[in-house]
Amino acid sequence: MLLFRSEEHAERWRERTKPPASAILKIEEATALARAWYKDKLDPDWRRFTTEEAETIFDDLGLDPEFWQLG
């Protein structure tokens, strides 16, 4: 996962490097995703998300289910 100055820069990089897949998130979406994913990581009762829980996080953030589905 990489950061780019703008979507145009991300598209240019994608054309050049041809990654296996591609989804572009605005920085505020990426930050919200990172927060949802990691805010409890250092808590004593942390555990990995189930597939359903992870997909709920993606859904709640409005991410494209075609790209983000885990099953």
Binding site: R14, A23, E28, A30, T31, F58, L70, G71
Partner: peptide
């Protein structure tokens, strides 16, 4: 990128994150 304690960020930026592998 500056992130506040509540997870907010500077939305004036055009910065984007590219995910190059499907999560699965």
């Amino acid at each position: 990128v500056e992130v506040d304690a509540d997870g907010g960020t500077d939305v004036q930026t055009w910065t984007v994150m590219q995910v190059g592998v499907r999560p699965r």
